[in-house]
Computed example of a mutant assay.
Amino acid sequence: MTDLLGWWPELAAAVLASVLAITLHEAAHGYAALALGDPTAKLAGRLSLNPIRHVDPVGTVLLPGILLLGQLATLGRVEFMFGWAKPVPVNIWALRHPRQGMMLVAAAGPLMNFGLALIAGLLVHPLVALEGSLPREAILAGLRFVQLSILANLVLGLFNLLPIPPLDGGRIVTGLLPQALAVPYMRLERWGILIVLFGVFLLPRLAEGYDPVGWALRHVVAGAFDLVLLLTGNGGGG
Rank of each mutant, 00 (worst) to 15 (best):
A21R: 05
A41W: 02
S48R: 03
P39R: 08
A33T: 13
N50G: 13
P57D: 03
L68Y: 08
L20V: 15
V19C: 03
I52A: 12
L72T: 13
V61T: 06
A32K: 06
G37C: 07
L75H: 08
I22V: 15
L75I: 07
H25G: 14
N50M: 12
L36P: 07
S48M: 07
G45K: 02
T23N: 11
A33S: 11
R46I: 09
D56Y: 04
T74Y: 00
L43G: 04
L47C: 04
R53D: 14
G59D: 05
L67C: 14
L62S: 13
P51G: 14
T60Y: 01
T40A: 01
V61R: 00
L75E: 11
P51D: 06
H25T: 11
A21G: 14
I22R: 09
L67I: 15
L69I: 15
P39H: 08
L75V: 11
F82H: 14
R77P: 01
T60K: 07
A35P: 02
V58L: 15
L34A: 15
L24R: 01
E79H: 10
L63W: 05
A41G: 11
A21W: 06
H25R: 14
H29G: 00
L34W: 10
D38A: 06
G76L: 03
A41K: 05
V55D: 13
P64Q: 08
A17K: 02
E26A: 09
P51C: 10
R46Q: 09
Y31H: 07
N50F: 07
V78G: 02
A33G: 09
T40R: 02
D38H: 08
G59T: 13
F82I: 13
Q71T: 11
L72I: 09
A21E: 14
T74P: 00
S48F: 05
G37K: 03
L43M: 15
A28M: 08
L68C: 01
L43H: 12
E79A: 15
P64R: 12
I52P: 00
Y31I: 14
R77E: 09
H25A: 07
G37V: 14
A73T: 09
H29L: 03
G70P: 01
A17C: 03
V78L: 00
F82D: 14
D56A: 13
V78F: 01
H54R: 06
L67S: 12
L72G: 04
L67K: 11
N50P: 11
H25M: 10
N50L: 09
L62D: 12
M81E: 09
G59L: 10
L68P: 04
L36Y: 06
S48C: 12
L34H: 02
H29E: 01
Y31F: 14
A73Y: 12
F80Q: 03
V58N: 01
A17P: 04
V58C: 00
L62I: 15
G45N: 03
Y31D: 01
M81G: 10
G59H: 02
G59C: 06
L36A: 11
